[in-house]
Amino acid sequence: MNKGKDLLYHYYDESTGPFHNLSDLPPQVAEQSLNDLRHQNKGYASQRSEDYHDIRREFQLINLTLRYKFGMTSR
Rank of each mutant, 00 (worst) to 15 (best):
L34T: 05
A45G: 03
G4I: 05
D6C: 14
Q32T: 12
K69W: 01
Y68L: 13
S33K: 15
Y52Q: 07
E50V: 01
L7I: 12
L22A: 03
K69S: 03
D36S: 14
R38P: 01
T65N: 11
S49T: 06
Y9N: 07
H53V: 04
G4V: 04
Q32S: 15
R57C: 03
L25N: 11
S33I: 04
Q28G: 08
L64V: 00
Y12S: 08
E50L: 04
G43E: 06
E14A: 14
R48M: 15
Y44C: 06
Y52T: 04
S49Y: 00
L66K: 04
P18M: 03
V29S: 07
S23R: 12
G43H: 08
Y9K: 02
F19K: 05
H53F: 14
Y68V: 06
Y68E: 15
T65V: 02
Q60R: 07
P27F: 06
L22V: 06
K3C: 08
L61A: 15
D6A: 13
K3A: 07
K42Y: 02
Q47T: 12
Q47L: 10
L37T: 08
P26N: 03
M72G: 12
K5E: 11
T65H: 06
N21V: 00
N63P: 00
S49D: 13
S15D: 13
N41V: 06
K42A: 12
T65D: 06
F59M: 09
E50A: 06
N63L: 03
G71T: 02
Q60L: 08
L37M: 12
G71K: 03
P27R: 05
S49C: 00
M1C: 14
S23Y: 08
E31F: 00
E14K: 14
Q60W: 01
S74K: 10
E58I: 13
N41A: 08
Q32A: 12
L22S: 10
K3E: 09
Q40N: 11
H20K: 13
I62Y: 05
N2R: 13
G4E: 03
